[in-house]
């Protein structure tokens, strides 16, 4: 994935106010089928897919045995098989992990389909108008986290409603050979190509964790990035034992912060956060929010001071940062009717 095509500001504006086109080059795609497919996905991922119906999608975390996150995966239930989709930066490790984990199951077929398909997405408040052109039913009927098979250009495209900007978002999983034609058509329909940097800002603003960038230099557990809600209770997933053990240890909690207007450059990851003279945490990620006109970010801080509404200070420059209640802002699409 490219970081930017034109300028991050222009691309950001497209995503928040119109419609952006995202090319997920290098996305991981794996098909899972066979009688044990559901059991396999419930073991390798943190969420059960037992009740996932054909045409529904869910997100799930893939964990290492030590409880740290490999990737967030989206699982699409297509009826005859499941299609598992992974963010490009984590694709290599996640796909290898999924293939290796399959050996413990006799009746499951797991195949790397990364070469067969490409992933393109439109996101933004008007993205649904483009997606509607590919559906023969009203777009409002394609609920959040559902997917449909669409005949297009002589092949079958899996069209799903998922996204990371908080805006309306639709993703096309298209046979590789047709990808460039679909991309051209989506551009023709008004979508503006957007890179990873603009996406990253939107993602932070609605507090969707960016596992590629939000960390303290090493692997993170779901608790470190506030994704513990993706751990299904009663599900015996890989990494569970280690996670339960690590929950008993004191650990820092994730918080969101907005910097004082005086801050001129983004503090690098690992910058200390202080209360009085004491270091209480470190910055895990930071972006410039054009809408808020401020640097905004995440940090992990000591459990004893972790709360929204705290006035801390960055080490070094000493700029004030205030912890806030997520999300940083409300997506434009919220309150905008579909169709």
């Amino acid at each position: 994935m490219k970081t930017s095509y034109t300028t991050t500001d222009e691309e950001y504006s497209a995503l928040r106010h119109h419609v952006g086109l995202i090319g997920y080059d290098g996305a991981g795609l794996v098909t899972v089928s066979g009688p044990q497919a559901t059991a396999y996905l419930g073991r390798v991922g943190t969420r059960s897919v037992d009740f996932l119906l054909e045409g529904q999608s869910t997100s799930s975390l893939l964990l290492r045995e030590d409880g740290t996150i490999i990737a967030e995966a989206i699982v699409h239930c297509r009826g005859t098989d499941y299609l598992v989709e992974i963010w490009p930066a984590q694709a290599a490790e996640a796909v290898a992990h999924l293939l290796a984990a399959a050996t413990a199951f006799a009746e499951v077929t797991v195949e790397d389909a990364g070469a067969q398909y490409a992933v393109l997405a439109v996101e933004g408040p008007s993205s649904f108008q483009i997606a509607q052109k590919y559906l023969d039913f009203p777009i409002a009927s394609l609920a959040y986290r559902s997917c449909a098979a669409v005949e297009w250009g002589g092949g079958t495209v899996t069209l799903s409603r998922t996204g990371i900007t908080g805006e309306y978002g639709y993703k096309f999983i298209v046979p590789s050979g047709d990808a460039s034609r679909l991309r051209a058509e989506l551009l023709e329909l008004g979508a503006v190509e957007c890179g990873k940097d603009a996406l990253d800002i939107c993602r932070m603003e609605v507090r969707f964790a960016n596992l590629e960038r939000e960390h303290t230099g090493g692997p993170v557990t779901p608790f470190d990035v506030g994704l513990q809600w993706m751990l299904d209770a009663g599900q015996d997933f890989a990494g569970l034992d280690a996670l339960e053990e690590s929950r008993r240890q004191p650990r820092r909690s994730p918080v969101c912060w907005v910097a004082d207007a005086a801050l001129e450059t983004a503090p690098p990851q690992g910058t200390a956060i202080e209360a009085g003279d004491a270091e209480v945490g470190v910055v895990t990620h930071c972006v410039w929010s054009p809408t808020l006109d401020r640097f905004i970010g995440t940090a992990v801080v000591d459990g004893g001071v972790a709360a929204s509404g705290q006035d801390f200070r960055l080490a070094g420059g000493g700029t004030a940062v205030r912890t806030i209640s997520a999300p940083f802002l409300t997506a434009t699409s919220l309150g905008l009717p579909l169709g």
């Binding site: 202080e274 209360a275 009085g276 003279d277 004491a278 209480v280 004893g304 001071v305 709360a307 509404g309 705290q310 006035d311 801390f312 200070r313 004030a320």
Partner: peptide, 10 residues
Amino acid sequence: VMTLDEATRR
């Protein structure tokens, strides 16, 4: 900016 005490109490 809060002192550690203030931050902890709040």
